[in-house]
Each structure stands twice: as structure tokens, then as C-alpha cells.
Design a protein around this nucleic acid. Sequence first.
DNA 1: GATTTCACTCGCACACTGTACGACAAACCT
DNA 2: AGGTTTGTCGTACAGTGTGCGAGTGAAATC
Lengths: 266, 266
Amino acid sequence: MKPPLTSVWTRESRPAKSPTLSRSQIVRAAVELLDAEGMDALSMRRLGSRLGSGATSIYWHVANKDELLELILDEIFGEVPLPAPEVIGWRDAASVLAYGLRTTLFAHPWSTTLVGTRPAIGPNAMRLSGRLLNTFTVAGFTGLSLDHASSALMAYVLGTTGPEIAWRSIMAGSEMNDEEMLAAMKVVLDQTAGDHPELVARYAEYADVDAEAVRALNFDFGLTCLLDGLEAHLRRRHAPGPVAAEDPEDARSGDTETTAEPSAGR
Amino acid sequence: MKPPLTSVWTRESRPAKSPTLSRSQIVRAAVELLDAEGMDALSMRRLGSRLGSGATSIYWHVANKDELLELILDEIFGEVPLPAPEVIGWRDAASVLAYGLRTTLFAHPWSTTLVGTRPAIGPNAMRLSGRLLNTFTVAGFTGLSLDHASSALMAYVLGTTGPEIAWRSIMAGSEMNDEEMLAAMKVVLDQTAGDHPELVARYAEYADVDAEAVRALNFDFGLTCLLDGLEAHLRRRHAPGPVAAEDPEDARSGDTETTAEPSAGR
DNA sequence: GATTTCACTCGCACACTGTACGACAAACCT
DNA sequence: AGGTTTGTCGTACAGTGTGCGAGTGAAATC
């Protein structure tokens, strides 16, 4: 019978007398430090000295470093711009959301280590997923499919962004450009996957294209496919017949929104 | 003009005289330790003592902890079963791959912290992505789309698995079941996203369904949508006409398999 | 006005981390 | 035999997160 919920978000922000330090100050400073010097540079001592405070003073406002990281994660979730699906349509809204999240994560490359690691509750994450839900509601999703659609989109963006940032950072670490990198990769390939000649052929194709452009294309391709698949699901549900045709009335639960679909037993 | 490639995979495994310790031993022991006690428990000293060796002896076989983690990541990539797309068809093969990767990652929950963080080169990762490429080649993808399709699938799986593991682990940490968790979540919701009533309504729906089952459904839903989208892309490419109809001959490259399409440029 | 009670800051200390270094031992090559 | 390579390990160093308790100043109480 421990504390009923262990997250930061239940415990209040210690609002009181005259705090020379505050949660939001700490979080902002932490984000600055991370942006400037990366994840390894974020230690409580360094953060403290950047705030002009003792290192352990932070622990009055934040229970431990993990909670601080949770706050930081939510902070950057607050940076992604939220589109209005009612005015630009669900597909564009979903795209804007996806691209917005992507560029926000790229703007804070250290976020990769946080984003998959801990669940994203917290006000800004909720705002984001609320808007996502809103978007797919406008699209016509109902019941569980609504969540499934949003989390599919989220998963795709998170899943692409992480490895991309990883690539970018190791290429920034070594002082070689894309071509040299690919050449080196080929060496690795030849000696580790010598029996996979199709891979070697594959990588050879990238020799003379801009890696960054390819990655952008890559993201867009997958996003389009996912949205196409979602749209297809939508059409299928609205038109149960084998051939696509508009149907006179919605197949199940005439009301436009919320809690349709009884969703298989318990 | 530093070392041309900084990865583990270029440097050989120190094969020599009579090693009482070896890379693969170290990696296996590390995986055991991680499985048993989690990521925080993996320190060089503990790993050393588990191997019956001094802590710093490991540094003869592995340059630093980061390299060790890279090896560990590749080790678990080796655990995912590889289907044969030529016999079971590309869609099933893609599903098997996706599910295999998913369950492998679930079997090693600590992998979440590794998988998005560093690029997955290394023999086992290459084997996996080789098979992925193979799968989508059988499907009919060519050129850049081939890579885009594989990485889209990979991204989706990685993107779903991470947060799911995170949820599972914090629920394991606190001794509350799904329902209590949801109740607590609702508290958080009410106080952080009080102005998002649709979210609250959303979560209320989950009150009486098995969270694990929903997550499984969730994964399958997104996977299906993605594969549907990929298939649609395929059909669109093969039948350029506005309305879908079977075409008398395959648009490009009649041979059934392998490295079709000269793929622009070069 | 004096005293107590907070809200908050911070120095110190502890256990622990990754890993550089150099001393060793044993196997190999001349 | 001597020298070199291959491999192991103890020690040491700088740095980590954080518990503890002493300190501060302002508000609340008497």
C-alpha cells in the first residue's frame, strides 16, 4: 500500500512562500543545458550551478532525477504545434502533428533517450494526444479504433525519429561525411554480412544521393502509407460491401461520435 | 583523420591465444544480468564478478561500456525469428517479422533504452534488415521504396514497443492493477487536462477491458493499417490508372524476384 | 515584541559509477 | 634464453545521485 501513484504529476509543485527556485525554472534550465551540451552533461551539480544554486537544492522541488527527466520530456512535448483538424481536415492535421513532433524531437536530439523510456503522461503530452484523438474523431474513427489510430501515428513518428537521430549523432561524432560513412558501412557489411549480397547492392544505391533528403522522403513515404491504411480502414467500415460504394446510412450506431462499437467481450 | 569508423563492428574480436574471457561470453553474461536485474544493475564491476573476473578485465575485449551495449543490442536482434517470404508470402512474413521483433523486445524490457538510442548495424541487425528487404522485394517493392517500406515497418514496431514496455514497467513498479492504475490516471487527467473532457471520456471506456488485450489489438490494428497502406502503394504503382483493375502484364520487370528495377541514376 | 514554526537552501558524506594506468603472469616467436 | 605479445587485475581518480542535518529568513502564533 505504497503511495497510490508514483508519478510526478500527482504531487503538486510545492507552491509556497518565496521560492527562489521553481519547478519551471529548473526544467527550463535543464532543457537549455541539454540543448547546449547533451544528455551526458546533465548532472544535478551542473544544473545547480547553472541555476546559481546548490546542487541538492533542486531536490526540494523535484523528488529525484527521474522525475526531473519526466518533467523535461513533457516540457518539449509542449513545443509541438497543434493543428485544428476541423479546419484543415484530418489528414493534413495528422501530417502536421507528425511533422511537428518530428521537428520538435530533432530540435532536442537528447530526447530520444527519454521518449521511448517512460510513459508520456503529463499535461503537454495529454494536450498532444488529446488533439490527436480529436483529429481522428474528425476523421470518423470511433471506439477503440480511435486510440489505435492515434497511437499508430505516434508510434510511427517515434519509431522513425529515434534511429534517425542516432544516425545523425554518430555521423556528427565522427568527422566523416555521408559518402565516407557509407564506404565505411560497406566495409562493415562486407565482413559481417558477406553472405547478404543484396544488402551491399542496396547500400551502393545510396552512394550518390543526399542522405538527408532520402531520410525526409523515407519519413513521408511511411507516413503516407500509414495514413492510406487508416483511410482504407475507415472506408471499409463505412461501406461493408466488397466493392467501394457510398452507403445510405452508417452501418452501426447512428450517432456521430463517442463510444460506438461494443468492443468484444470484456 | 581519426579512426575511420568508430563502431565496434570494424574492430575484430581480439581472437588470439587462450582467452579465459571472450566477447560472446561477456555479452551473454551481460544479457543474463540485464534480464535478471534490469538496466540499472549492469555495471562493469557486477558484470565482472558475475564472470568470475576482475571488473577491468572486460576492457581488454570491449573498448568501453557503450560498445558493450551495442554488442548486447545486436545480440538480442539475433533472437528474432526470420520467416521465409517466398513460401509464406510477403504480408505474413512482414507480420511474423513484426511480431517476432515485438516479442523479442518484450522478452528483454531493458532493450527499450538501447534500441532507439544507437543505430543498429552489426551482423544480427543486418540479417534482420536483410530479411526485411527480402520480404518487401518479394512483395514487389523496388528502388528507394524498398528501404522506405522496411524502415516504416521497423519504425512502427519500435515505436509501439517502447511506450508499451514503459507502461508495463511502471505498472509493475507500483503494486496496483490496471483498474487502479486507470483510476489514478483519471486523477492525473482531471487535474492536468481538466479542459480536455474528451480524454477523460476516452479513458473511462477502458475501465472494463483487459489492458493487455487492448494493447495487443492496438498493435495489430496499426500493423494492419500500415501493411494495407504499403499494399495500396504497391497496387498504385503497378496499375497507374485511376480505377483499380488487373492489368494484363506486370508494368515493370517481369521476373518474379530479386533486384529488379535498375533504380534511377548512377 | 518574543517565540515558534515553517519553507527552503546547501555543505557534507556515502556508496557507486566508468575507465586510465601500470604491474603482473603466461604463452608464443625467434 | 630472451623478448614480445596477449591477457588479467588492483588501485586510483574524477564524477555521479542523493540522504541527512544544520542553517537561513520570513511568516504565524502567542
